[in-house]
Nucleic acid binder design. Structure first.
Length: 418
RNA sequence: GUGGCCGUAGCUCAGCUGGUAGAGCCCCGGGUUGUGGUCCCGGUGGUCGCGGGUUCGAAUCCCGUCGGUCACCCCA
């Protein structure tokens, strides 16, 4: 029986790592410049953490979590998202006593048991930025700007920003009653899915692709029209910061979130060049009651998460640096240990060096050197070494003694750098 | 979880209505060449996803299962 990677998982092969490093590097660079420090939390947590924060009516909790009992009988869950862990650590490690806001980012694998598709895996990587301990609307905007910054450095264009405010506790209560009334009134027009949502989490009724239903919902009360003065002012300020930064966005009154902890600002970055079902590159929002919801102090927060694999798909046109510095070709009659000692010297000097480990013919070694994009070739036979530079017809030096190879190569590299 | 399509060498695929597997690319060697590339020749490599069934005989038909992909759902 052939052993295969579990359903929905994938290997990131050596050839894929350059792109992955580019995406991760862009995220780390942006985080550093925007003042977000990395936090690493466990890949699994007590199950109740996610049940409380995501909401017991959410799909993530109901059918997508990898939950198991450990040998001590504890119910643990492989994290389906990163925000809950950050909030938990914020409380447990006393970060609410640090100067606020605390700005962190995380990077690592997440786990959701859902039907796998392209750009959608059961184990997938996310990068996320979170700012806890401040309700400043400038932070909401800053977080969106940070993601724009990542897109820019990865050469990704044509991404749309959708924006909405779903209000806070104060304004949402009244609104939800009106929405429920509307939904009850139009119950015969709702599909099965919408009825289920109406009972549990009415706001999410708007998250539909059913055109008939969308038509009905056009007349439904919108949360954006029901914001209290404070929430409206907050949203106004978020938009002012985005406008001043020159970031375009679409106001989408139907935009809601699948997790219960969100309040006020919510947004998504969408890349239409990806397949429709997986076009969301990044989703975020404010969660002003999440921390106190799991037993912490009253601490508002805001943040986003982006899928690394989807960013890789969007950034696949990115030109990546390739090539090594030196390839050492050896004829059969050379003293291999002595020649390889020279290679080690070059590596210690900081050059990326390779040689043949497959007993290739001289022609085969040349092919391999070319394949690796070697800038310099050092060919060694019984009479000494020849140093050649890629793309040049004439050799750079002939008759180099074996134990002077490193010295001479470094001299040539140094000379051509100027 | 539901439905459609798909699953043959590392990769992309061909193999019509059943008779014990092929091509191109890649990889390795040789020749040619301004010792790379190009071009020519040769070679390595597959129990046809897995299991069962029908049959004298199945990659080819049937069932199941696993996996991929797309849509729904949900989301990153």
């Amino acid at each position: 029986m052939k052993i295969e990677a579990p359903r929905g998982t994938h290997d990131v092969l050596p050839a894929d790592q350059l792109l992955r490093q580019a995406v991760i590097g862009a995220g780390e660079s942006t985080a550093a410049r925007f003042g977000y420090s990395r936090i690493t939390t466990p890949t699994f947590e007590e199950t109740t953490l996610f049940e409380r924060t995501s909401g017991e009516g959410s799909d993530v909790v109901n059918k997508e979590m990898y939950t198991f009992l450990d040998r001590g009988g504890r119910s643990l869950t492989l994290r389906p998202e990163g925000t809950a862990s950050v909030a938990r650590a914020y409380i447990e490690r006393g970060m609410h006593r640090l100067p606020q806001p605390v700005k962190t980012f995380y990077l690592g694998p997440m786990f959701r048991y859902a039907a796998p598709q392209k750009g959608r895996y059961r184990e997938f990587w996310q990068i996320g930025l979170e700012a806890l301990g401040s309700d400043d609307p400038a932070l909401d905007a800053e977080l969106m700007l940070a993601f724009v910054d990542i897109l820019t450095s990865l050469g990704i264009s044509g991404v749309r920003l959708q924006l909405n405010s779903i209000g806070g506790r104060e304004c949402r209560g009244d609104y939800l009653e009106r929405l429920r009334a509307f939904l009850a009134e139009h119950e015969e027009s709702l599909d099965e899915d919408a009825r289920r949502k109406a009972a549990r989490s009415p706001l999410r009724v708007f998250d539909t692709k059913n055109p008939a239903l969308a038509e009905v919902l056009r007349d439904a009360p919108k949360i954006g029209d029901a914001l209290c003065a404070a929430c409206a002012a907050h949203f106004e300020s978020v938009r002012a910061h985005l406008d001043a930064a020159g970031v375009a966005y679409e106001l989408v009154p139907e935009l809601v979130r699948g997790l219960d902890y969100y309040t006020r600002t919510v947004w998504e970055f969408i890349d239409d060049s990806l397949d429709a079902a997986q076009s969301t590159l990044c989703a975020g929002g404010r969660y002003d009651h999440l921390v106190e919801g799991i037993g912490g102090p009253a601490a508002p927060g805001v943040g986003w998460a982006a899928g690394i694999e989807r960013l890789e798909l969007s950034a696949s046109a990115l030109e990546l640096p390739t090539g090594i510095d030196v390839f050492l070709l050896l004829a059969e009659d050379v003293d291999r240990p002595r020649a390889l000692a020279e290679l080690t010297s070059l590596r210690r000097a900081g050059l990326r060096c390779e040689t043949d480990y497959a007993s290739r013919s001289m022609k085969g070694q040349l092919t391999h050197a070319n394949r690796l994009g070697a800038a310099w070739r050092v060919r060694v036979d019984g009479t000494g070494a020849t140093i050649e530079r890629r793309g040049l017809a004439e050799v750079s030096e002939v008759g180099v003694a074996i134990d002077r190879i490193a010295e001479r190569v470094l001299a040539h590299v140094e000379r051509t750098r100027g």
